[in-house]
Design a protein around this nucleic acid. Sequence first.
DNA 1: ATACTATATGAACGATCGGTCGTTTAGTTT
DNA 2: AAACTAAACGACCGATCGTTCATATAGTAT
Lengths: 210, 210
Amino acid sequence: MTDDGRLLRGRRSREAILGQAVSLASVEGLDGLSLSRLATALGISKSGFFAHWRDKEQLQLDAVDWAVRQWTERIISPALHAPRGVRRLFALHEARLRFYTDRVLPGGCFFLTVQTEFDDRPGPVRERVSQAMRDWLALLRRVAAEAVECGDLRPDVDPAQLAYEIEALGELAVAHSRLFREPQAITYSRRAVLQRLRALCPDPALLPED
Amino acid sequence: MTDDGRLLRGRRSREAILGQAVSLASVEGLDGLSLSRLATALGISKSGFFAHWRDKEQLQLDAVDWAVRQWTERIISPALHAPRGVRRLFALHEARLRFYTDRVLPGGCFFLTVQTEFDDRPGPVRERVSQAMRDWLALLRRVAAEAVECGDLRPDVDPAQLAYEIEALGELAVAHSRLFREPQAITYSRRAVLQRLRALCPDPALLPED
DNA sequence: ATACTATATGAACGATCGGTCGTTTAGTTT
DNA sequence: AAACTAAACGACCGATCGTTCATATAGTAT
């Protein structure tokens, strides 16, 4: 049943397609991405997509889910190995910056691209992207709240406010580093979050000097 | 010479087209924007563009310049009325947030959209956008440096670092407020910059409480 | 009135878009 | 071997893309 060669082949195809779709979409966006270019990049035929997805929108939705999975595996999971509190919060930020500097995606950040692409057009893709970003921000907020609870951060810190700041300082790092073709923005981003956290953290030993 | 009715009419047409192009591009991007939709939005014919621009790329370049002009008129110039120093720096941030909440552009921010759209594709448009953002960041940096020089901000403040932070906290405000359909991000953005500046500013009277 | 120029149009072009359809290939079941 | 199924293909569709071109209109110059 599970070792049906046809189903296995299909799943591999879908995954290969989704991986390439996320890569290309990080550059051109989910709508800017055309099925023809996606097909030629994979060496397959254009009509083959419709054996797996009803239309382009379904593929876009699955691509968002695939990008969420990639983000979880490469950023969230590793950072969760850091000890609870402010160190875990900073680990999330550093893992994100490493994701950018490692050039995992040719366009830098899938979510920044599709977020600005779809934030003004109604539809299922927009809702899916919106939910993904809500989930990510909720995670940042929760980890920040944990840092307050365990005493790493001063008790008057607003976790939602702090989550917004970390997200903003992180997202623009990839945008500037690519637009200006220089890694300067990554340095600013890291230092900004670090200084901010150190200012809110009574124990200076929990965070690196710089 | 200057009162040639034909040239006047042509200039008005170009300005009307550029204004609409910037508006539409703030939603769909400069490339996502199609000449057909731009023409129908203006009630003119599609082929009329080529009386004013050689091709679409020339129109895109002029649209960037037009957006810079709008940004200068609506954000930079008003903020320069604030007194030199930290108050002028915060005035720039508040003018930007007002630009967003006033819904001047249907897509929120032209520059965020085209920046993420073109940061990975080489070409003249990319270079023009890149230069526009460099200029804007240079202005933020200069105003921040002035604030340090005149003693508003502590002498150890790095103006380039601070400019990056203000830009990041400002850009994501429009992205989040639109993606989540709630103005919360604007509040976070304002408070983040305000708290950051107050922490660096010896004289608390220069900035509002919150 | 005539010649000239800037602005705008409608019809058409080749290219590409997302999508359909009938067929073939690969693998499973009986 | 025959029947069946999932996956992939090539050919083709109507729509839309940016662009060209011949032409018409509007305003200036002689």
